[in-house]
């Protein structure tokens, strides 16, 4: 598993027994200002390092929100532990709210972990083990971190950005063919009672990602979610 260091010269730390590796705390010292990205939700802090590793720290009663098993025997003074499932998948963005956290890989693959808000008995399909795409992907599936499969008109799509609210997820995606972007779409799922999904109306809950049709092929440059709201930046000059 990859080792947490915060400069690029960390190859030698691979394959070193875990106890012998430098602590995250010591590694952070070599970071410049703004190099670390930290987000928080109801139970967990999540940290993204400049080299794309994802660490979490939080309430051990909610391991699903940690995205990894709680580690009580850790000698790590910072409390942050790496999500090992993502250790070979460098990420470029994290977002977190409520009881859910997500990470977007450099390759445009979206991962989420967590659970529904207390009192909500429905779950986003990707988080719900019983409805995971109905395909035989058990070998690769992690107990905590789930892959969000995104398709536009049936074609596999790459995720360019995403946002997470208290109980909802917004995904900006595109389909490429031979290096050309042929389709752009924004999709959303989760709690919709405040209209935060943007798909029209105020549906109580939407389990599977649904496209926000009004935004088809628009050049969305960024997405941010509030607890029960969503914001998009759109480039209208294109």
């Amino acid at each position: 598993m990859s080792n947490p260091t915060f400069n690029s010269a960390h190859d030698e730390a691979y394959n070193v027994p875990k106890e012998a590796r430098p602590h995250l705390y010591h590694s952070i010292k070599s970071c410049g200002p703004g190099d670390l990205h930290v987000v928080a939700n109801a139970t967990t802090f999540t940290l993204l390092t400049p080299d794309g590793a994802v660490y979490t720290y939080g309430d051990p009663r909610y391991p699903r929100c940690l995205g990894r098993p709680p580690n009580h025997n850790s000698s790590n003074p910072s409390g942050f532990e790496e999500i090992e499932y993502l250790s070979h998948t460098p990420c470029r963005k994290i977002a977190s709210a409520g009881w859910m956290t997500g990470a977007l890989s450099n390759d445009g693959e979206l991962f989420i972990w967590g659970q529904s808000e207390p009192g909500v008995d429905k779950a986003i399909a990707a988080l719900n083990p019983s409805s995971a795409n109905g395909e035989e992907e058990e070998d690769e599936a992690d107990e905590f971190v789930k892959v969000v499969k995104v398709t536009v008109d049936g074609a596999d799509a790459t995720v360019t950005d995403f946002g997470i609210g208290t109980g909802h997820l917004v995904v900006v995606a595109r389909v490429e063919e031979d290096g050309e972007v042929v389709k752009r779409a924004v999709l959303a799922c989760g709690q919709g009672e405040s209209g935060q999904l943007g798909i029209g109306g105020r549906p109580e809950f939407v389990g599977n990602l649904m496209e926000i049709e009004a935004l088809r092929d628009m050049d969305v440059t960024g997405v941010m979610c509030g607890g029960r709201s969503s914001f998009l930046a759109v480039n209208l000059m294109r």
């Binding site: 109801a42 139970t43 309430d59 009663r61 409520g98 009881w99 808000e117 207390p118 009192g119 208290t166 009672e193 029960r228």
Partner: peptide, 16 residues
């Protein structure tokens, strides 16, 4: 009131 119930429900779970 729904929003208040939801907020409070989250807090009830966020603490032991």
């Amino acid at each position: 009131p729904d929003a208040c119930i939801r907020l409070a429900h989250e807090k009830l779970h966020a603490y032991p």
